[in-house]
Structures are given as C-alpha cells and as structure tokens.
C-alpha cells in the first residue's frame, strides 16, 4: 500500500521557483496497478523520483505501509528505499556484471550472505523466466530480457511497492505485452502495489487497473480504467481508446462516431440498432476490447436514418453517438474525431 498525501515538489525558490508537482493525492492498494500518464513535462518523472525516494518532496508525504518515508533523515531514507522496488527505462544494469550479479546487487548492498544471495537470485531469475540466462552479460540479452533482470533486481528485497518508471518505453510492442503480463502476474503473486509511470497510452490499457492523468503537476483525472473508458466525458478515457481511421461511408449515408458509454453495452448492438432502425449498419472502423471483463471501445458506423432516431437507438444500447460531419473534401480523415488527435501523447 502506498499513499501520497499533498505531495509537492518545487525547484528553486523566490519568484523563479518552479512547482513541478502540486499537492498530489494518490493511493495504490496492494494488488492494484495504477498507471500515471500525461504529456511530457507534466511532472511524471519527478513524481517517479519522489515515489522512489530518489528526490525528496518539498512538502507532503510518501506513506508506505503506514510510515511516512519522505521526512526520514538521509541515512534512514536510504534504508527506506528498499521497501520500494524501482524498474527504470532501459533497465540500467551494470554492464560488467552478469544477470545474476545484477539481481544480487541490492542483496549485496544489504550484506546478505553469499549462500542466501545465491538462492534468492536463482528464485528471482526463475520468477522472471531468465534462469537459463543467469551467467549472461547485459550485452548478450535482448531489451526485454534486460528489463526482466531489472524487474528481478527491483524485487530482490521483497518490496511491497513496485515503481515502474517508463519501463516499457523503447521496447517493441510484443516485448511490452510480455512485460505487462509479467508485471500483472507478479502483482497477483506478490500482492504488490504497482505505480506504472508511462506516456504510452496503449500500454496503460493493457496493464492498469486504475489510471491518473497528470497535467502541469496536478492530477486532473483519476479513476478505475473501466470507468474512464466507458465515460465519454473523460479526456483520459478517450485518449486511452484507439480511434482507427474509418472507411468512407456509402453515398447518402452519414458516418457516426460511437463510444461505449456504459458497462452494459450488448455484444450484438450492431444487429440490435440495425433491427430497430430497419436498415443495415455499415461498420467503417472499430476497436473493441475487454477491460476487467467489461467490453469497451469505439466504432464508426455509416447509416441513413434521421439523426434523432439514430441517436436514440444508440443511446438505448448504452452507446454515445455523434454524427461526423462530412463537409470536408476527405471524408476518411474527418471521420476521425479531432479530440483524439489532440490527445496523442507520444
């Protein structure tokens, strides 16, 4: 369990002071993965540094299992860091040490006996699926394998909180997915509270239970992932949903941009709406996925029915529907709502 209370970080002082984090309140329960996301410059990396206790917050608390760690004196802060495992971007392994030696580093710092260290390292490498790579050097490992070594190292001291600081950034999509699966597995097995800081929205959709959007040092939106993506008013929810480019509708029909706006959208809504309106719906684009067992997604359909009738029919199935204006010369590009373009955080 990790709780941030009124966490504030200010760089410099006087009139030139820069407030990077402004009164953040965050709580992550054991077994929960919180994704913190936001555009670059929002304060994500500073937040990660404060959570990992590498930077001391200007004010506010970082509470792990009931104890405020941010206010500890330097020597005890160093010990407190061991309660939070951190995974960094690009793994940050010692290049001259083998995978096993890298995983052993926190144990070595702590002064654990060689025999115990050996047993623990073997167990950790097994857990991340790298037992067969124990004696390999980082340059002999793939990016994903290096990141797994980083995860094993972060878990070496049995932390209750795991912090992932852009850990999947720079990995290819397949490797990212396997990393995400591993993190979720570890979260379940070890009951970890995981803070997953990333700018990759599609990764958030795969990894997180809850998500927070950081902007200008403030949390502007926070909630369960499934609530965010089924709320058409949620900026974060919309940014999380992929909006594939839509095909052009048939002449005379209007394209509609739909999003799942409820947890109870039936799987056969396409047929239902079609039956109600008495005309076939043309599916021009769609991206549907299951989050926590709830179907969510977005779609673009083409139909001829009058606008008020169509809107009502969609609403009855729990869909938020907006007709897309086809005034522009290129109906394909106008079918993609502008909002998603503005929300492409990369």
């Amino acid at each position: 369990m990790i709780t941030l209370k009124k966490l504030t970080k200010v760089y410099g002082n006087g009139p030139g002071a820069l407030t990077v984090l402004d009164n953040l309140d965050i709580e992550v329960a054991p077994g929960e993965i919180l994704a913190v996301t936001g555009p670059s410059g929002a304060g994500k990396s500073t937040l990660a540094q404060c959570i990992g206790l590498l930077e001391r917050p200007t004010s506010g608390q970082v509470i792990v299992n009931g104890e405020d760690l941010a206010s500890l004196p330097e020597r005890r802060l160093r010990v407190a860091r061991r309660r939070i495992g951190t995974i960094f971007q690009s793994a940050s392994l010692l290049s001259r040490s083998t995978a096993a030696q890298n995983v052993a580093l926190p144990l070595q710092y702590l002064g654990v006996t060689p025999a115990e260290t050996k047993a623990r390292v073997a167990e950790l490498l097994e857990r991340v699926g790298l037992a067969h790579r124990a004696d390999h050097y980082p340059f002999e490992l793939s990016g994903g394998q290096r990141q797994r070594v980083g995860i094993a190292r972060a878990l070496a001291l049995r932390p209750s909180v795991l912090l992932s600081d852009e850990a999947t950034s720079g990995l290819d999509p397949e490797t990212t997915l396997s990393m995400v699966a591993l993190l979720r597995q570890l979260r379940d097995d070890l009951d970890l509270a995981v803070v997953f800081v990333t700018h990759e929205m599609d990764t958030v959709l795969h990894v997180a239970d809850t998500a927070a959007r950081l902007e200008d040092g403030r949390i502007v939106e926070q909630g369960r992932l499934v609530d965010l993506v089924t709320d058409h008013d949620s900026v974060l929810g919309r940014a999380l949903q992929p909006r594939p480019a839509a095909a052009a509708p048939a002449p005379g029909s209007t394209p509609w941009a739909l999003s799942y706006d409820s947890r109870a959208v039936p799987a056969d809504w396409l047929q239902r709406v079609s039956a109600e309106l008495g005309e076939p719906l043309a599916l021009l684009a769609a991206s549907i996925q299951s989050i926590d067992g709830t179907s969510t997604g977005t779609a673009t359909v083409g139909l001829r029915a009058p606008a008020h009738q169509a809107a009502a029919a969609f609403a009855r199935q729990g869909l938020h529907a907006v007709p897309v204006r086809t005034a522009g010369p290129d109906p394909v590009s106008t079918a993609v709502p502008r909002a998603t373009e503005e929300l492409q955080w990369a």
Binding site: G52, L54, R78, V79, R81, R82, I84, G85, T86, F88, Q89, S90, S92, L93, L94, S95, R96, S97, L105, P106, Q108, Y109, L110, G150, R153, A154, A156, L157
Partner: peptide
Amino acid sequence: RSVTAAARASGGSPLQIIRTAQLGE
C-alpha cells in the same frame, strides 16, 4: 546516470554506489 539511480534505488550507501555503479562500471 540511470545506473547510479538504480544503485541508489537498490539501497546502496554512497561508498557502495561509487564502488559498484560508478568506478566499477
């Protein structure tokens, strides 16, 4: 720099960090 950061996050003392993550590397 991230190597030093990782060593700090691993709970190393300044001397340990200097020896392993800085001079060692």
